[in-house]
Amino acid sequence: MSESNTVVAVSGLRKEFVVYKKTGRLKREKTVVAAVDGVDLRIERGEMLGYIGPNGAGKSTTLKMLTGILTPSAGEVRVCGLEPVPRRIALTRRIGVVFGQRSVLWWDLPLRESFDLLRHVFRVPADEHAARLRRCREMLDLDEFADTPVRQLSLGQRMRGELTAALLHGPEILFLDEPTIGLDVVSKQAVRSFLAETARRGDTTIVLTTHDLADIERLCKRLVVIDHGHVVHDGTLDALHHRYGSRRQVVVDLEDPWSGDLDLGGAVGEIDGEDPRRVTFSLTNGASTAGELVARLATTVGLRDVSIVEPDIEDVIARLYATAR
């Protein structure tokens, strides 16, 4: 990728905090803790990046440095070609931010009036503002509560309003910190569909941090995992599954109880403890496909039913964290 396509360029990023621990009745010990420790990261224009990790891993701290809220202790940071802290005002006009429970909307004003005020704050031409608002209204179903004061909105309604507010000035990159936390199923689906469509358009880079791994599976092609301030994985979900031994499973229900060898060379089977006619085969990475396994079984045993179980990302992430420690 060329430099002109690089929206975020981070090298050796580090953020230290001073923590005081009580060591006696009147004494405290000062400890320096690195919340982010040597992160290197490049994000290209139009990417949708999942940035995840356990609590305290450094996710939110990284986002706060990328948006100019926190000053790095060391390292180099460029977002949209700007150094975030000294160029914070200029950067604000080129990024959008949604930070969990923190609101940029005016609490006592109707949602519609908040949007209008933001147009003046960011000095957005009226026609551009109207076009972006129209798209958000249609995709996020804003009209039914656009005249409701923000304080009276449900969490799901307010999050849809926050996403709209973050995009009305046409940012080059959108930072999202836990955008679906606490949302009901309907609101989650609305937010995910909207973000997927925004990513497909390709004109807004999206960085998403979340504990909801379903968001990552459905939205992000690239996944960066951080743990104890260090990047421990940067790549696709498929690469993550492959690296940490994730397996697709093929569950077969047979006409008769299984009596043969459970090691089929590309898959290893396990007989159900309650039903000897049900066998679960775990596929070895790269050795066999589900189709090949089913075709092989069909020529040797009587099949009643077959189902394929995709690997659970939560399990593979847990194994990654355990390995990183």
Rank of each mutant, 00 (worst) to 15 (best):
F281C: 00
V225M: 08
K188Q: 15
L219H: 03
L297S: 00
R325W: 11
L283M: 08
V10F: 06
L49N: 05
K30E: 15
V316W: 02
G46E: 09
L155Y: 11
F281M: 02
E292W: 00
E255M: 08
V77P: 01
V231G: 00
D215H: 08
S187T: 13
S73L: 09
G156A: 11
R248L: 03
A34G: 09
S2T: 15
K64Y: 08
V8T: 09
E217Q: 12
R151G: 12
A324V: 02
S60E: 07
F194H: 07
D315L: 02
D305L: 03
A57P: 01
G266C: 06
G269Y: 00
R78C: 09
S103R: 11
G38L: 01
E197T: 14
Y20W: 15
F17R: 13
L140P: 06
Y321R: 06
R93F: 05
A298D: 09
L167F: 09
V309T: 15
S60Y: 06
K21W: 05
G58R: 10
V8W: 05
S60P: 10
G24D: 07
F145W: 10
L82R: 07
V77T: 12
Y321L: 11
V186S: 15
W106I: 14
R45W: 01
V18E: 15
S154K: 09
K59M: 08
A74T: 01
R296Q: 13
V191D: 06
S103Y: 05
Q152P: 04
A196D: 12
V232L: 03
V250T: 00
L163E: 12
D315Y: 07
V232N: 02
A165Y: 06
L155N: 09
I206C: 03
A196S: 12
G12P: 00
L168S: 11
E29A: 14
L91I: 05
L167A: 08
L63H: 12
A130L: 10
A290S: 11
V294S: 06
D272L: 00
L111Y: 08
E178P: 06
W107M: 14
T180P: 10
G235F: 02
L13H: 00
R248S: 13
